[in-house]
Structure formats: structure tokens, C-alpha cells
Design a protein around this nucleic acid. Sequence first.
DNA 1: TTTATTCTTGACAGTAACAGTAGAGATTCT
DNA 2: AGAATCTCTACTGTTACTGTCAAGAATAAA
Lengths: 158, 158
Amino acid sequence: MKLSTKSRYGVRAMFDMAYHAGNLPAQIKDISRRQNISPRYLEQIFQDLKKAGLLKSRRGPQGGYTLARTADKITVKEVILAAEGELMLVNCIKGLRKDGEAPPTCEFDNQCLTQHIWAEGSRILGDYFASITLKDLCDRGQELGLEKELDHRFMYFI
Amino acid sequence: MKLSTKSRYGVRAMFDMAYHAGNLPAQIKDISRRQNISPRYLEQIFQDLKKAGLLKSRRGPQGGYTLARTADKITVKEVILAAEGELMLVNCIKGLRKDGEAPPTCEFDNQCLTQHIWAEGSRILGDYFASITLKDLCDRGQELGLEKELDHRFMYFI
DNA sequence: TTTATTCTTGACAGTAACAGTAGAGATTCT
DNA sequence: AGAATCTCTACTGTTACTGTCAAGAATAAA
């Protein structure tokens, strides 16, 4: 019952982008360095986040990723959903899936009492994650005095 | 982020015991038949539940398992905790573990903003599961008109 | 136009956890 | 004594997770 690293890394990386955001797109190498995540692996995760519409990208020099929306409009739930594929404690319950595939049916189906518990638990957890935005995390980071890294690409112009 | 089958089977089996409880201990073979769980696998799960103090057992003919407490004193959380080992969405947070082993430390530790989210999510989920007892499930089963199986070992005396 | 930079895509692989099977042994009742 | 039942330990196949890698496409700058 653990969240995958994709979800955890995904949330950390999205927070990192929001927190250290400058005028230029954020690059994999900077994010992976600050968050200590394998850059090649982070690429994969960002592809998922991009497919989910949470990130926009731009190739070439000075390219990178930018948040598709402002930090207060992106919730932790969205990030997890994009990285994890779904937010369900079990497979046998009907719920929104990333690629719209049908859920495997349970042998007991509607006769299963426990099904209701798992579905409700999933919902409660989802609601909690939906109540937290990237901006909330940034505010919290600032309270804690977390250092903001100045974009090194700006250095040359100062 | 899925519950293991141990947890799901465990809850189903514990409910089954509470629902079909007679005067005699419930036997693996009956529970596994009703719940369609491999008997050998269920043995393993019941060992965990017994170690956690949720079940008592008795060997020999007419032996089997009985709930260590009444159904209204056993929560779903306890069953999951016994079967799953712990109820934590990630490994890097401090929390009660089944065997008291120390949690792996996170490189960011107290500087990690997301840690707080995972811990809080785990807590919320745990609270929900703690609010449901086996008796609640039995009541619900009765509302749904779920058939109670008469203990076949009684048949001979009727 | 060339070149360097960066994202894009798809394939590959080691590891660990999960889910289940199996056998021999201990206990208890009849 | 013998049968029924739990107990303990070990084994195994499968799957998902957690990455790594290589080649390619787009873009900006020189």
C-alpha cells in the first residue's frame, strides 16, 4: 500500500518547479539535481505529467518545462493521478482510469461488503490530496525558510 | 498504491467469521470455501492475524479459529495493520511498524515538505478504517440480506 | 546553415514484493 | 491409536517497480 516513486518524485518535482520558477522554462537537469532524482527517470515522469496536461515543454537551448497552469490551480491529486495512473486502493472497484480501460470485475461484485470500504477510503484520500495545491506547498516552503535557488542562467546578466 | 491481497482477504475472512459465527471455532476450509480464498494462503494470513492478537486458535478435531474479541471491538484498521504490517503511504515517515523496526531515513528528512502530506494522508486513511468495526460490516450484510450459512457441523444434531 | 542543447520515444533489465504452493510437524479430540 | 486441525518454514513463479540506455526530433543561437 505504498505510493510509487513516480508519484512522490512527481510531486517533489512539480513543487520544485513552482518554488524555483523563473522566467525561463525549468530544465530536467536542474530539477533532478535539486531534488536528487535520476534525470533519465525524471524524464519519464515528466512525459506522464505532460500527457496529463500539467506541463508544457519546449525543446532546444533554453528549453525545458513549464507548469501548464499557475501553482494555485494544480493539486497534489492531479499530479498523483497523472503519475500513478489512478487513485484506487484496490483494483476491483469502478473508478476513473487514466486510459479509460475497464476495471477488472470482482467475483462478488455487488455482494461484496468490503468493496464499499475500499472505494470510500480511496475517495477520502483523493479528497485530501485534492485539497492541497502546489501553491500551498510553496507557502509552506517559504515559512520554513527553504532557500530559493536563483536561476543560474540569469547570473550572466547581473 | 494498492492494498495487498493479504489485507483484502484478511478483512473478508474476519467478516466471514463474525457473520457466520456459531458456537464452534471457524475452520479454514469453511471460510476459504465461502470467500473463495486459497486455504493454504489463508492459513498464512491467519497466522499474522493471530500474532496480532485478533484471533485465537485451537487445534485438533472441532478446532479452528475464533475472534479474540467481539465483533464490535475489532476494527478494519487493526486487521489491515496486522496483515499489511503497517499503514503508511510511503516508507520515509515515522510510524508504528508491526515489528518495531526503524523506518528508513529520508535524505531530506525534516526539510521535506511532501513528507507531511504523506503522513497526514496515511493518518486520515487510518482513521477512516479505524471507524469501521466488523460489527458494522455484519449489520450491513444483514441489511443486504446476505445469507448466513448454518454451520454444517450442527446439522447432525437437528 | 551549422551546431549545441534539450525534450521525445521506445526498448531493455535488474530487483523486490506479491501471491500462492508445499511438506513435515505439533496438538487435540474421539 | 488415529484422524482432524492448526503451525512453521521454505520454496517458487509472476508481476510491477525502478530505473538505464540509445537514437531521434525540434529549437535557438552563432
